[in-house]
């Protein structure tokens, strides 16, 4: 029997998830459409005043991104749980937390990276300045993986439940607070012409903390949900 190294398994999980997503590529558009729709609701509710929209644009885009991430994160382990491949992953000799990290990375590539391409467009529509849009993109780039990583814990915890949806939001949203704060204050600082490197370093720190720490509780929760 041929055994695979941990790195090969890591790559295989990412490749498999990307392939699966490619086969159902119509579904990829959903988080994007949701993101755009939520942003569209704000000018409709607030009125089209340019100064107001410009002022609150980063907050709107970030909250929309957060909700889009929350929407799509529910599918992180769902399909694998239903068809039993998650149990096989648990039974492999490889560390489950590394495989979990691979799944989260695949999820990030599929649900968050497309947002990075559409977010500048939204920024322009909300009258943001171009250099502020750059900072916004940087915060999305650093912050969205953290959202997926933290969301993974909650998804793993609620996996066995029939009605996990609302509960998932209650579990996850308080944990999203720091990222939202650092990201929107970075963009705010950019808007007022202050340096943003401090905020971005903080977000980097949170990102690395999340990459190293969150797969462990996620793996523990998965094992618990499957037992």
């Amino acid at each position: 029997m041929k055994t695979s190294s941990l790195f090969q398994a890591f790559g295989a999980v990412i490749k498999r998830d990307l392939l699966l997503a490619y086969r159902h590529r119509a579904e990829l558009i959903n988080p994007l459409a949701f993101f755009v729709m939520v942003i569209t609701l704000f000018p409709l509710a607030l009125g089209a005043e340019v100064a107001l929209l410009k002022r609150i644009a980063p907050a709107i885009i970030w909250v929309a991104a957060l909700l889009a991430s929350l929407m799509s994160i529910d599918n992180l382990f769902r399909a694998d749980y239903d068809d039993g491949s998650l149990e096989l992953m648990v039974m492999t000799p490889h560390s489950l937390s590394v495989l979990v990290l691979a799944k989260v990375i695949a999820h990030w590539l599929l649900s968050s990276v497309p947002l990075l391409f559409i977010a500048p467009l939204m920024g322009v529509m909300l009258h943001m300045d171009s250099d502020v849009i750059g900072v916004l993109l940087l915060t999305l780039l650093l912050g969205m993986p953290v959202l997926s990583l933290i969301g993974g814990i909650a998804v793993a915890l609620t996996l066995g439940l029939r009605k996990g949806g609302a509960l998932l939001a209650i579990l996850v949203l308080p944990l999203y607070v720091p990222i939202l704060i650092f990201a929107s204050s970075a963009v705010d600082a950019a808007m007022s012409g202050f340096p943003v490197s401090g905020h971005l370093s903080m977000m980097c720190a949170i990102l690395f903390l999340a990459i190293t720490l969150t797969p462990l509780p996620t793996a523990a929760a998965l094992k618990m949900s499957l037992s």
Binding site: I153, L157, V177, I181, P217, M224
Partner: peptide, 27 residues
């Protein structure tokens, strides 16, 4: 199972509380 799930969540929360606290203070 529920108790174990809650324990994992509480531990995650306890790591997060200082981060949340300081980020909110800074905000």
């Amino acid at each position: 199972t529920a108790s174990r799930a809650v324990a994992i969540l509480a531990l995650v929360g306890v790591v997060n509380i200082p981060i949340i606290h300081y980020s909110v203070e800074w905000w």
